[in-house]
Write a protein that binds this DNA or RNA. Structure first.
Lengths: 339, 339
DNA sequence: CTGAAAGCGCTTACAG
DNA sequence: CTGAAAGCGCTTACAG
């Protein structure tokens, strides 16, 4: 049934079989093209018979457009990004696009991008990784829109979608102060990342408004091991914190495990723990983590919409979208009224 | 600097700028092609100047090969698949391949595959989803090797890589019987999936060897809510189980949360819980789950190697690789010696 | 080592 | 509505 020669049937083969021109075959598979119903039926029958599928590469070559979007990620261990990846992929697929996936290290992913850019991608979506502003400019010149999620390259011609990390951090500071905590600590993620910096900044400002300062600080680097080590450093002292804000949920789980399993502390009786992201596991019984929502769904659809709009307009947007999150109080923290 | 006309510089532009033929440009970017060192330098300089990158689509069209591999997944919520996705992608990238990602529903992903197959993929890797044996045959005829991870299509011309689920289930049955449990229950995943069926089968056989039968059974469908419901059904009775084997870790976490938070049972004092997969979270302090290793790394590298081999040979392999796992005893279960 | 030419599989003005 | 022809950006015999 299938073409013996090449292992791949092409439009010419179908045309011959259907007794029409190659143009007719092409028109059959181009929605809205002008073709007689009967011709179309003949082509479809022949195509089915031969197992023909239009070759997307050839089509993209001639139309100078592609329905392929590059997706760049650095970290899938963190369930926040796993959730985001799935949501982004499904939305893009629903919009008729196809996803090319790349994993890089954290930070600037220019090398990986050089590879992706060999393909005529219609757009680029990056999360947990960035690109240099030079490459951002190059993409803009080439007409390839770039959308960053959870990252931001100042002054670059890109769209960025971030959570309102400052406001989120402030909500946590406010909440812990109101609950009557006196020695409030912070465990940072990657000290370079704007997510961690902004959360910390908002947090400190809020504490200040209540006349408090950050009692202690350690860096967990957004890794589990880093978080455990930070917890040990912070709590193996004479006057340990009575509350700790951890820059994301993923680290907060490690902190809780360490506090309870290793240091024999009770949460929240001895210490309140607050995270950030509201990943699925935060609601699981074992953690019941008070945290700030990263509105993944909103962020994803904002990012995807922005990307699709830019692709449609052929204009690489340039805006900063900040999505508000909210504090979700669960049982890992003391409440103001329990004071 | 970049080409003003089209937004994309092509080999012809570079050739003109460097004062050489288009062939020379092509040879410069084809490793091993015969080209003088000096010519090559001129081309490279011109390419850099103009911001030229070879177009992978055009290249693939003419060579009739592509370095693109299709990856099909159904479920990323389960951390086992997230870990696998990242490992697979990174290995494939390291081998110079690029990954096209597709999400489908569980079961047969024929529709999604029809879309992928419009691209000239060099091979297909599927996990947590399968394809019909008809489509498997079609791929084989088209020379596209298919590798299934954690799934199997009997008699189809594909390579499948699965864990030895029977042996794993047997290890659990054996372990629980030796620990002196009398009323051992099972919570199934997707009753259709061979993973769940094989684990259950091995489990029951092992119990039988100890003169036990499976005391109760419920279906969790590999979802968290299903697992919670299954736990309620199984444990809200007069003589509840004293041990439960859950078909995967992901559900086992939900079961533990329900047992402890909702039913007031202690793990392992009142009931032993055993999972399957050994996902990262199984080792986290809050769960400390006894489970059976799915040797992700081995499975991934076996699958990737098989795929790359088939691509290289141009022959769609046909074998079943079964990877052994092992029981990891943690604190969610009573041990034989504590009897 | 090098270039001119053919061709991968498609779409799209153009003329009918 | 339809077909012949040109061309997307590349690689690869072929001849020199």
């Amino acid at each position: 049934m299938a073409n013996r020669r090449s292992g791949r049937v092409n439009a010419r083969d179908v045309a011959r079989a259907a007794g029409v021109s190659q143009s007719a075959v092409s028109r059959t598979f181009t929605p809205g093209a002008s073709i007689a119903a009967e011709t179309r039926q003949r082509v479809i029958a022949a195509a089915r018979e031969l197992g023909y599928r239009p070759n997307a590469f050839a089509r993209s070559l001639i139309t100078r457009r592609s329905r392929m979007v590059g997706l760049v990620l650095a970290d899938l261990d963190n369930p926040f990004y796993a959730r985001m990846l799935e949501a982004v992929s499904r939305e893009l697929q629903a919009a008729g696009h196809h996803v090319m996936l790349f994993f890089t290290d954290r930070g600037e992913a220019d090398d990986a991008l050089q590879e992706i850019l060999q393909y005529p991608v219609a757009g680029l979506l990056m999360a947990s990784a960035t690109l240099s502003s030079a490459l951002a400019r190059e993409c803009a010149e080439a007409g390839i829109p770039v959308v960053l999620v959870n990252r931001d390259v100042p002054d670059a011609p890109t769209v960025s979608v971030t959570a309102d990390n400052e406001a989120g951090g402030a909500a946590v500071g406010d909440f812990l102060a109101r609950a009557g905590h006196q020695r409030v600590a912070f465990i940072a993620g990657d000290p370079e990342a704007s997510t961690s910096r902004d959360r910390e900044h908002g947090f400190r400002e809020a504490l200040a408004r209540h006349g408090l300062t950050c009692h202690a600080r350690a860096v967990g680097n957004y890794t589990r091991e880093g978080a455990r080590e930070a917890a040990r450093t912070l709590f193996r002292v004479n006057a340990p914190p009575d509350a700790v804000f951890v820059a994301n949920d993923y680290m907060a789980f490690a902190v809780m495990d360490t506090l309870r399993g290793e240091l024999g502390l009770r949460v929240p009786e001895d210490v309140s723990v607050v995270g950030y992201d509201d990943v699925t596991q935060a609601a699981w019984g074992a953690y019941n983590l008070t945290t700030v929502t990263q509105p993944t769904d909103t962020m994803v659809s904002t990012a995807v919409t922005a990307l699709l709009d830019s692709i449609r307009d052929g204009a690489p947007g340039r805006e900063r979208r900040v999505i508000a999150g909210e504090l979700v109080v669960r049982r890992s923290s003391r409440c103001p009224q329990n004071r």
